[in-house]
């Protein structure tokens, strides 16, 4: 490591730093991230001069520094493990997302009045406030985000629009993109007859 440490005298210009578009770290730190293989592939395409600077045989030799070969091997193994783990995690998250249920509840308020409660859209990265606004405009009615009895967020739309919403989801209209239609279930919530 360099030992020179000059005190800033005047106006010093900011240092130029190349950041990795995959892992966001400065390029020299990609090797410690969880996407090293992808980082290298990206850099090779994006900037071959920078790629050579970091990954040529020479560069790889000099970066070992005081770390023993054994320790370096261990590091590489750790990075590979980390990468595999990150990938598995991303896969699992996607799988979970794609199997996440959306419930449309048709709730009977009285003989002729219904409200429709939609739950589970947030799992598909849909902003509930935006979706509520979308429903309100689409059906020219009231729609708002509120908490259900379990304390989860849901969208409550005035009126009997359960089947219309299902159709919008199936077509992927507006903000309702990316929800597999098989995940959508319509349930009836009938008012209990007290007499």
């Amino acid at each position: 490591m360099s030992t020179e440490d000059q005190a800033p005298s005047q106006d010093i210009p900011p240092k130029e730093i190349f950041y990795c578009e995959v892992c966001t770290f400065p390029l020299e730190y990609c090797e410690f991230g969880s996407s090293f293989t992808k980082c290298k592939e990206w850099l090779k395409e994006a900037d071959s001069a920078q790629y050579d600077k970091h990954y040529s045989e020479e560069a790889l030799q000099s970066k070992l520094g005081t770390l023993s070969l054994e320790a370096q091997k261990k590091l590489e193994k750790d990075v590979a493990k980390k990468e595999a783990k990150a990938e598995a995690k991303a896969d699992a998250a996607l799988k979970k997302k794609m199997s996440s249920p959306v419930t449309i509840k048709r709730i009977e308020r009285n003989k002729r009045k219904h409200v429709t409660a939609v739950h589970g859209l947030e799992a598909f990265d849909i902003e509930l406030k935006k979706a509520a606004k979308f429903f309100a405009q689409r059906f020219a009615t009231g729609a708002s985000v509120s908490k259900n009895a379990q304390g989860q967020d849901e969208i409550v739309v005035q009126g009997d629009v359960a089947y219309d919403i299902e159709e919008l989801i199936e077509k992927g209209t507006g903000v309702l993109k990316g929800i597999p239609i098989d995940n959508v279930e319509i349930v009836e919530d009938k008012k209990k007859k007290s007499d």
């Binding site: 800033p8 240092k15 730093i17 070992l64 750790d78």
Partner: peptide
């Protein structure tokens, strides 16, 4: 700090410590 690295006094860690820091 990465843009203006000289604004603080410097210390350094060895390569083996990097992954712990991260």
């Amino acid at each position: 700090l990465q843009r203006y690295p000289s604004i603080l006094p410097k210390v350094g860690i060895d390569r083996g410590a990097i992954r712990f820091l991260l």
